[in-house]
Simulated assay, not measured.
Amino acid sequence: MFASLVLVLLIAAIAWIGASVGLAPLFGVVLPYAAVLVFIGGMIWRMTYWAKSPVPFCIPTTGGQEQSLDFIKQAKIDCPSTTWGVVKRMFTEVFLFRSLFRNTSAEIVENDPVNKGPRLIYYSSLWLWAFALIFHYSVLVIFIRHFRFFMEPVPAPITWVETIDGIMQVGSPRFYWTGGLALVALLFLLARRVWNYRLRYISLANDYFPLWLLLGIVCSGLCLRYFDKTEISQVKIYLMGLTHFAPVSAAGINGLFFIHLTLVCVLLMYFPFSKLAHMPGVFFSPTRNMANNSRRIRHINPWNPPKQYFTYPEYEDAYRDAMAEAGLPLEKQPEKAAE
């Protein structure tokens, strides 16, 4: 955990020092272009690899009654048997995190008054579902809001999203609720991984690093807006120059902006090769995108190429003499023995 935190702090320090000593073109021009290229190339490679991977078995994850007799009610979303059912299941999975909503946690109660001893109990884990949903939708809104830095004039839908996000204005500048909600959700996800000893035991550096990286991005973005402010118009001119492949000077922009930008670039480069790629990966998962219809439709294993079969008559023709010498029963005796 601490190694991942130190790594994120080191990246931020390098960006801060680099911007201070005149390396702003490196961190503000070269790195963003390289990050976008790595992100696009990495995602194309990852999705191509997933698409080409054979699916040897029909393995949809089921969470209810499958299609059976007419008088038995089928769970058409949790156990779909048609393409339309799979579409509905994928919709609820992508937009509502249905499988996470149905997630349960297990815990052993040492002194259960009923069993007079240890007992395994299961309980709902809705807090994880709620904060995961809050985080993902907050990040989506933040992502949409940031398009105002790359467009002029700003499209009306982006302005509407920005207005709705800050409709309950608190102070000046206007407080965007998604920024605060994203920070709270990330702190919950980090605290859950740290304080749950079972989860902490199986956690690796690649579990903590994206959390610290996202926290660094959110915190630096909040600081840029509410505390160590920078000139928004100058940042917009600078970012629009990057978008139109006509970079302009970054002189005068706050050094904290380059920390924020560098952390975002690192996230883009890290994204295709990490667990964060589950965003497009869910569409390639056979446990989600397959219908549970193995009783009606035969699933062909693509790993089974055509084979050259060796029939028993061919086998006996090849080894007849040796089999006769060993005393094995034969359908046809060797020619010498028949004479």
Rank of each mutant, 00 (worst) to 15 (best):
L5G: 06
L7C: 12
A12Y: 02
I17F: 12
A24Y: 03
A24V: 15
G28M: 01
V30Q: 04
V30F: 11
P32V: 05
F39E: 00
G42Y: 02
K52G: 06
P54L: 11
P56T: 09
F57S: 13
T62D: 01
E66K: 08
L69Q: 14
Q74I: 02
T82F: 02
W84E: 07
V86C: 02
R89C: 03
L96N: 05
S99A: 06
L100S: 06
R102M: 14
I108R: 11
E110Y: 07
E110G: 09
P113E: 11
K116A: 12
R119K: 14
L120V: 14
I121E: 13
Y123W: 07
S125R: 15
I134V: 15
H136S: 00
Y137N: 08
S138P: 02
I144A: 14
F149A: 07
F149H: 08
V154K: 02
W160L: 14
V161D: 05
M168P: 00
Q169G: 09
G171D: 04
S172R: 08
F175C: 03
L181I: 08
V184C: 06
L187A: 13
R192T: 05
Y197M: 11
L199E: 13
A205T: 13
Y208F: 15
Y208I: 08
P210W: 08
W212E: 04
G216R: 03
I217V: 14
L224F: 10
G241Q: 03
G241P: 02
H244R: 13
A246W: 08
V248P: 01
A251R: 10
L256V: 05
F257A: 04
I259M: 12
L267M: 13
F273M: 08
S274V: 07
K275C: 04
L276G: 07
F284V: 06
S285K: 14
P286L: 10
T287N: 15
M290I: 04
N292E: 05
S294D: 09
S294F: 11
I300A: 10
P306R: 05
P306A: 06
Q308V: 15
Y309V: 14
T311C: 09
D317E: 14
Y319I: 07
A326E: 12
P329H: 10
E331H: 13
K336C: 05
A337E: 14
E339N: 14
